[in-house]
Amino acid sequence: MAKIKLAKSKVDKLVEICKSFDNEGSELINVLHKAQQTFGYLPAEVQEIIARELNVSVAHVYGVVTFYSFFSMVPKGEFPISICMGTACYVRGGEKVLEEFKRQLNVPVGETTDDGKFSISCLRCVGACGLAPVVTVGERVYGRVSVGDVADIIKEYQQ
C-alpha cells in the first residue's frame, strides 16, 4: 500500500465516516457516497483508507468505484457542466449541444479544463424531459438549450 499523504484531518474524517457505518464491508457503497460528498471525488488514497477501515481489499473498493458511473476518481471542475443524454434530450438535439460544449471548452467528456473551472459530463435523464434538451451547471438547470446558447452559459460562469 502506498504511503498515505492525505492530511490527518481528512484521514480522521474518513475513519469517522467508515465508523458511522460500523466499518461494515457491506456498507461500502454508502461509505463511498459519503466520502465523495465530503471530498468531491475518490482518489486512490481515499480508497486505500476505506479498504483498510472496512477490512476489504483495495482491489474490491477500486472494483466498486469504477463499476458505478456516479463515483469519480478525478476532481470535477468548480462549475461542473452536465449535458443530459437521455433519449428525450438526445432526439431534441442534446448531442449537438454536448459537441458545442466540448468544442468551446476544449475538453473531452469526463475531464476538467486546465484552469479547474469547468468539467463536462453526460448524465442520463434528470427527469425534466419537458425542457429537453437539458444542461445542468452545478445545481442550476438550463432547459431548451440550443447550440447558440452554449457560449452564453459558459460566459455566465467565466467572470
Binding site: I29, N30, L32, F67, S69, F70, R124
Partner: peptide, 20 residues
C-alpha cells in the same frame, strides 16, 4: 442508494449492489 448502473434494475444485480 444506487450509484448509476443501469444493470442494477435487474433484480439479482440490484441485490448485489445492496450488499455493497
Amino acid at each position: 442508494y444506487g450509484a448509476g448502473a443501469f444493470v442494477c434494475g435487474e433484480e439479482t444485480a440490484l441485490i448485489h449492489s445492496m450488499e455493497g
